[in-house]
């Protein structure tokens, strides 16, 4: 049985279409990364899961329950980190956690949760009005963990976190998955998703344009590589050289790093790149190709191919 089942959901605000026939399934026990640029419809999707908003058409089911009719039971079993967390200024951090525990009828120890997300006891005793973005994010994450939820819904969870905080969050996400929870998390920061997700869905303009494992997404674009070309020196007319390489069919981006050119391109363009570079009077000392990062995939999927790729499953 799936944890989240969204079938053919459309959400319109007046004439604006936020989601257009979205279908998406998240299996129990997996970490699902929900990727897309800002404004793609990620938060709209999450708001539908929580019954914050209602679909114009289609069906949203969580734990095989109707998101609207069974909103209360769904939220009882779900931990939520909403986007752009806003806290109660005049309540302390600890009071927030206590309130979440009371609301869920759970028996967690608030101090344990606070420690788990890396918030200091001193900070937890202070009013949340003075919290930094990162502290607020940690605190809300602690409230999301209350009651060992079956499903964690995290909207842009790494916002405002320092690298340590982000790492801690990834660790907890994995621990929760290992405990048996399903994790659904949205992000436009790809490093986060790549490091932790079992599966990834990419959303653009309210439509799911790709959905697969990170490896699967890479395999689905086998021709996409990153080429690092090291030259003996920087060409005299470096701007023209860059422009010439960029103009080659199949090249999606060129970044100079000193004497090295980093070229994201399709496989077939590799030889052409080397030829063109050498036309500018320099010698290629070395070149290597790496597996494309999700970042490259993301750019290729969300910006590169206008007119729409098929959904990859």
């Amino acid at each position: 049985m799936s944890a989240i089942d969204i079938s053919d959901v459309t959400k319109r605000y007046g004439t604006e279409t936020a989601l257009d026939g979205l279908s998406l399934t998240v299996e129990r026990g997996e970490i699902y990364g929900f990727l897309g640029p800002n404004g793609a419809g990620k938060s709209t999707t999450i708001n539908l899961l929580l019954d914050f908003i209602r679909p114009t058409a289609g069906e949203v089911r969580v734990f095989d329950l109707d998101a609207q009719a069974n909103a209360l039971e769904i939220r009882q079993r779900t931990g939520i980190l909403p986007e752009g967390v806003e806290l109660y200024e005049r309540l302390t951090g600890r009071q927030h956690v206590e309130f979440a525990i009371e609301s869920k009828g759970a028996d967690d120890d608030p101090d344990e949760l606070i420690e788990r997300v890396g918030l200091s006891p001193d900070a937890a005793a202070k009013k949340a009005g003075g919290y930094s973005k990162g502290m607020a994010q940690r605190l809300t994450f602690a409230t999301a963990l209350v009651g060992e939820p079956d499903l964690l819904i995290l909207d842009e969870p790494s916002t405002g976190l320092d690298p340590n905080g982000a790492r801690r969050m990834r660790e907890i996400i994995r621990e929760e998955r290992d405990r048996g929870a399903t994790v659904f998390f949205s992000s436009h920061v790809l490093g986060q998703v790549e490091a932790v997700c079992d599966r990834v869905g990419i959303l653009r303009d309210g439509e799911l344009i790709a959905e697969d494992t990170v490896e699967g997404l890479r395999d689905s674009m086998p021709d996409q590589t990153r080429l690092r070309v090291t030259l003996d020196r920087i060409p005299d007319d470096s701007d023209a050289a860059l422009a010439a390489v960029e103009a080659i069919d199949g090249v999606s981006s060129v970044t100079p790093e000193g004497r090295t050119l980093v070229v994201a391109c399709e496989d077939r363009a590799k030889t052409e790149v080397l030829h063109v570079v050498e036309e500018y009077g320099v010698t290629v000392e070395d070149f290597e190709t790496d597996e494309s990062s999700l970042e490259d995939l993301f750019v290729a999927y969300t910006a590169g191919a206008d007119g729409g790729r098929e959904v990859v499953r």
Binding site: F52, L72, I80, E86, K104, T140, A144
Partner: peptide, 9 residues
């Protein structure tokens, strides 16, 4: 969203 994210009608 924090308040209604918890199980309250």
């Amino acid at each position: 969203k924090f308040l209604l994210g918890l199980p309250h009608r």
